[in-house]
Write a protein that binds this DNA or RNA. Structure first.
Ligand SMILES: [Mg+2]
Length: 455
DNA sequence: AGCTAAGTCAACA
DNA sequence: TGTTGACTTAGCT
């Protein structure tokens, strides 16, 4: 009789048996995630219609429960099959919400949908919220204020968000919000990891991310292995399948996380070589990484409230801003690279007082034959006009106990426009502009967070 | 060809 | 604001 009374729903449930709602963005697959598990998540999680039952959701139940559930149809087989797909809670150590890695809307084209699934968007928002809980309206707000693509005025994606909150068992309603309007949404304990994603949809290892001083991308490209660059290695770096980068043991990687001038210069050389090969002529200039003079400045760069011990990185995301739109700004060099070394302290010694790039830029010496500087030295000065559009840029501070505190900027959003300011007597150009960004006003606005950044 | 994650539209409470 | 279903799409095996 159980067979007969098994509601159609219980059959359909099999298609919702994945608690995660699979957060992989379209077109992306998770590969090599270490977090996959073959354990069963109780089918109790699968779609109880009431809040009460979803509250009972806790840890995965033994598989035996599952078979009782699917008793009607194909018994053991079904539950086994489910076993394979279900994701299981993982204990992850999360930093406090405000120290989560920043989520950056760095797409050039903001009519293009960001590469995150709705579930991931919701999860990212909640993980960064005080108390790790948000109301629906707050979720809308986070998403629309983080990604230019999502407009408050459009209802389609908001419908999808609601749909997702309901459907995805990792999102649970908790207490009623004060403001009357709905409840807080939280992430079911143990499922936070599902929402720690890179843009590629890969699950992030927070341990690594939070300790990546520069969030510099080309880890593999700038290790010292590179120095013996044979020509054969040519094709396997950068945008290739990174299936092969593996060989560097984790320890090793960590060690090389901080880009060295050498490493970066090697990248520059490679780019030059390629450019030369591509263009046929060999007048491509050699570029060098910048050496920046650092001076203390606590006025423009107050330290975030000292936050003990661990060597996490505090990240502030700048408000959305536009690059200086002055057409035809002069530049001394043009160098596009995936790494974020521009304003980073390149120097190998990282100790010192609170440091920052000598405000701003005026003293960055550019040009000349001195290899210590980003000298597009041999390259003629040119002009360029920054692209329009809002961007944000992260400002990161190592939260370490020692005095190596610095603030630097990793302007990954600037990859489409790299130019250094001319230090020529081109008086019409302001020194404040670095890579098309008015650093002074940007930083000021960060320190005066009074202005609302709605959209 | 079937399966699954994910997105869209929409009824309805 | 929240739940649910029908339907679609894309990638994988
Ligand atoms: Mg839910």
């Amino acid at each position: 009789m159980n067979n007969l009374t098994t509601p159609p729903k219980s059959v359909k449930r099999t298609k919702y048996n994945d608690v995660s709602g699979r957060l992989t963005p379209p077109g992306q697959r998770i590969k090599g995630s270490k977090i996959t598990s073959t354990k069963l998540l109780s089918p109790d999680l699968s779609s109880p219609p009431t809040t009460a039952s979803s509250k009972s959701l806790q840890k995965p139940q033994p598989a035996s429960k599952a078979s009782s559930m699917s008793k009607g149809e194909s018994k053991g087989t079904v539950s086994l099959k489910r076993n394979k797909k279900l994701k299981v809670p993982q204990e992850v150590v999360l930093p406090p919400p405000e120290q989560m890695p920043p989520v950056i809307d760095d797409s050039v084209d903001f009519t293009k949908k960001p590469p995150y699934s709705y579930a991931t968007l919701i999860g990212m928002a909640i993980l960064r919220a005080p108390g790790r809980k948000l109301t629906l309206a707050q979720i809308y707000h986070w998403i629309s204020s983080t990604f230019r693509y999502y407009k408050k005025s459009e209802v389609g994606w908001q419908n999808s968000i609601r749909h997702n909150l309901s459907l995805n068992k990792a999102f649970i309603k908790t207490e009623r919000a004060k403001d009357g309007k709905g409840s807080f949404w939280q992430i079911q304990n143990g499922f936070e990891y599902m929402f720690l994603r890179t843009k590629d949809g890969k699950i992030i290892d927070l341990e690594v991310v939070l300790h990546e001083p520069y969030q510099a991308k080309p880890l593999e490209s700038i290790t010292d292995r590179d120095s013996e660059d044979s020509e054969s290695e040519e094709e396997e770096d950068e945008e290739e399948e990174e299936e092969e980068v593996d060989e560097i043991p984790d320890e090793e990687k960590r060690k090389h996380v901080t880009p060295t001038r050498q490493g970066l210069n090697r990248i520059a050389s490679r780019k030059r070589r390629r450019s030369t090969e591509a263009s046929g002529n060999n007048n491509t200039p050699q570029l060098f990484t910048p050496l920046i003079n650092w001076i203390p400045n606590t006025e423009n760069f107050p330290l975030p409230s000292a936050n003990t011990g661990s060597s996490n990185i505090i990240t502030q995301l700048s408000p959305p801003f536009q690059r200086n739109q002055t057409p035809n700004q002069s530049f001394n060099s043009s160098f596009s690279c995936n790494s974020n070394f521009d304003l980073s302290p390149i120097k190998s010694s990282v100790t010192g007082p609170l440091l920052e790039p000598k405000t701003p830029i005026a003293t960055i010496r550019v040009s000349g034959n001195n290899n210590n500087f980003l000298t597009a030295a041999k390259q003629s000065t040119g002009t360029a006009t920054p692209k329009s559009g809002l961007v944000r840029t992260p400002f990161k501070t190592p939260n370490s106990a020692n005095i190596m505190k610095k603030i630097w900027n990793s302007p990954s959003c600037l990859e489409d426009f790299y130019s250094s300011p001319s230090n020529k007597s081109n008086s019409s150009k302001s020194n404040n502009y670095y890579y098309g960004i008015d650093m002074v006003s940007l930083l000021k606005s960060m320190n005066n967070p009074d202005e609302e950044l709605e959209r």
